[in-house]
Every structure is written in C-alpha cells, then in structure tokens.
C-alpha cells in the first residue's frame, strides 16, 4: 500500500474518532454510535499509523515453510 493511502487512512480514522468524541460530548451523537466508530477506527488507525511510519519497500521474504 502506498504511504499516501496509508496516511489518508490515519487522517480519516483520527479525525472521525475526534469528531465523534466531540459530538458525543455535545450530546449530538449517542454513546453506542460513538463506541461503534471507535471499534472500527481503532484497529485501522493503529495499523495504518505504524505502516505510515515504517512500511517496508523491500521485497517480501519467504518464511520457513518446512523441509
């Protein structure tokens, strides 16, 4: 995946989570919807953040697959 795409995911997830937190705090978004957003956002944010910083451009390796 290109770094640009991964950064877009980081940004989208981060902004969505923060906006949801704001909307929930203001009483506009119900708690269950806010939590649902976090359940979807958190894994994507964590993985995309790591990939954005350090995704390898080298060729894939072949792990040990048995004798």
């Amino acid at each position: 995946m290109k770094k640009k795409t991964v950064f877009a995911i980081v940004l989208a997830c981060g902004v969505t989570a923060l906006v949801s937190m704001g909307l929930n705090w203001a009483g506009i978004m119900p708690l269950w919807l806010y939590e649902t957003v976090l359940v979807v956002d958190t894994p994507a944010f964590v993985i995309a953040l790591g990939l954005w910083v350090m995704a390898g451009n080298a060729d894939e390796d072949i792990p040990f697959i048995g004798y």
Partner: peptide
C-alpha cells in the same frame, strides 16, 4: 509499531 513491516510472500 515502528519497525519495518511487510507481508511474507507465502
């Protein structure tokens, strides 16, 4: 989280 990452070929 900040190590070089890829997906194995297999």
């Amino acid at each position: 989280a900040f190590k070089v990452t890829w997906i194995p070929a297999t």
